[in-house]
């Protein structure tokens, strides 16, 4: 089997029990993706698979044969940084930074979901299009915890950078 990680085809793990997270960090040395809780409760390990956000700690790498995986190291940069990375600095969207790669990958996946019209728990009308209000972003980003409490800055950075086209 092989995985396509940040555009590069790489071999999968020899043991099928290895999580995508451990394969990224321990074998491929892509340590940008973080191991927080390792049980699906914190979101620090969020990566994009064919543009969809998932938790790499709960994913067996072997299940992702041939899929396109994007980690924080593989985001399209403008200069050195993806625009959302730059906004995280601008809006104080981090303190220790441990949750940041997961927050950024999650936000990119979140915006794609909103553009597709996926409703959320706080959407008042399931049939209407999505407007990424602050409350909508809070709910949609609830799978990414920040123990430093930078959530307000994170939402500011997302709104400033990525939500413009669907905030109407």
């Amino acid at each position: 089997m092989s995985l396509v990680i940040n555009g590069n085809a790489v071999a999968g793990p020899s043991d099928p029990r290895v999580s995508l997270l451990d394969h990224l960090r321990e074998t491929l040395h892509l340590t940008g993706t973080k191991k927080g809780c390792n049980q699906g409760a914190c979101g620090a390990c969020t990566v994009l698979v064919d543009g969809e956000r998932i938790l790499s700690c709960l994913a067996l790498a072997v299940q992702y044969d041939g899929r396109r995986i994007t980690t924080i190291e593989g985001l399209d940069a403008v200069g050195d940084l993806h625009p959302l990375q730059a906004a995280f600095i601008e809006y104080d969207a981090l303190q220790c930074g441990y949750c940041t790669p997961g927050q950024i990958c999650s936000a990119i996946g979140m915006v794609a979901e909103a553009q597709r019209g996926v409703p959320s728990h706080v959407s008042t009308d399931l049939a209407a299009g999505v407007t990424l209000t602050r409350a909508e972003i809070q709910e949609r980003m609830s799978g990414n915890l920040c123990r430093c409490g930078a959530h307000n800055g994170i939402i500011d950075a997302i709104r400033a950078t990525m939500a413009a086209e669907i905030m109407a």
Binding site: G40, L55, G109, P119, S120, H121, G143
Partner: peptide, 16 residues
């Protein structure tokens, strides 16, 4: 049914 699913887990987990 939509509401029940959207009330569960996180977006990442619902995608998986």
């Amino acid at each position: 049914l939509s509401r029940a699913i959207l009330a569960g887990a996180s977006a990442q987990i619902r995608n998986m």
